[in-house]
């Protein structure tokens, strides 16, 4: 009797397991989906954050895009050059054109001390909210609103709101995904290669007179940097000096001549803040 129960139990469970296993095997055969093994290989290599920085909905669609030839092998801005090289190897290409890692910069130095506020904003704690409410609480219509939309959206925790009311980006954590660039309602966040040391920290297309009223570190459009740059990397966009990072060779001449201290090197900017 005892052995009977034991036997029944083992046989029943074994039978059930076998039936389901057979069913699943048949189903897997019948409903097999042909996938390119390279898609899985590429997905394995990718960071897997599904951040969407490449323009695809996620890492899987990126991998499918690469295999289909719609997306370049170095299209993942988050993965390092190493990732691009590995994907290139999977795709059978020998040499991947590597791209310099980009990091984000807020082109504004108008912190609480430097820039004038024209009103007190006490609404939804978001730059977009302030911007929607009569065009923002800063007197400068191009200045950083300091409510941290870029900090909130950063998927990698690279952005921190400084005590002075300007966001700071950790160059080690920033992957250059560009989410903050899109999130900023004033479009003053930009991406630049990590090797670029000097930046024009102003986005205001205002005249010198207007700028002086609202900010003590804004670009007044004196064009000294344009003349000083040996690479001719700086040009005027109306009354604002703009850096062409492709041409910049880090000579640092612009930093020396800027009368408003608008142009700073990254290290110097950190010093000024401290």
């Amino acid at each position: 009797m005892q052995t009977d129960i034991f036997l029944y139990a083992v046989l029943t469970m074994g039978f059930l397991g076998a039936v389901f296993a057979a069913g699943l095997t048949i189903a897997a055969r019948v409903f097999a989906v042909d996938t390119d093994p390279r898609v899985d290989d590429i997905e394995e290599v990718l960071p897997g954050a599904n951040c969407g920085a490449c323009g695809e909905p996620g890492c899987q669609s990126f991998a499918e895009g690469v295999v289909a030839g719609k997306v370049p092998v170095n299209g993942c801005p988050v993965g390092s050059a190493d990732v691009a090289a590995q994907i290139a190897r999977i795709m059978g290409q020998t040499e991947a054109a590597t791209r310099e890692r980009q990091i984000a910069h807020v082109l504004c130095r108008g912190n609480r001390e430097n820039a004038v506020a024209r009103s007190v904003y006490d609404g939804i704690p978001s730059c977009a909210g302030s911007q929607a409410l009569g065009g923002g609480h800063k007197a400068c219509p191009y200045g950083c609103l300091g409510l941290g939309d870029c900090v909130d959206i950063c998927p990698f925790g690279a952005a921190v709101m400084g005590e002075d009311g300007l966001p700071q980006f950790d160059p080690d954590k920033c992957t250059g995904c560009g989410k903050c660039v899109e999130a900023c309602p004033r479009n003053i966040v930009t991406l630049a290669g990590i090797s670029k040391k000097h930046h024009i920290y102003c986005s205001a297309k205002l005249s010198a007179k207007e700028i002086r009223k609202v900010c003590s570190v804004g670009c007044i459009g004196c064009q000294r940097c344009v003349k000083a740059c040996p690479e001719e990397a700086i040009s005027m966009d109306g009354r604002l000096a703009v850096m062409d990072y492709e041409k910049c060779k880090n000579s640092g001449e612009c930093v020396e001549v800027c009368p408003m201290n608008t142009i700073q090197s990254m290290e110097q900017k950190e010093l000024v803040k401290k």
Partner: peptide, 14 residues
Amino acid sequence: LGLEYLQTVSFILV
């Protein structure tokens, strides 16, 4: 088969 005590295991399998 008088195997009600195997309910949990077999249902998990299902």
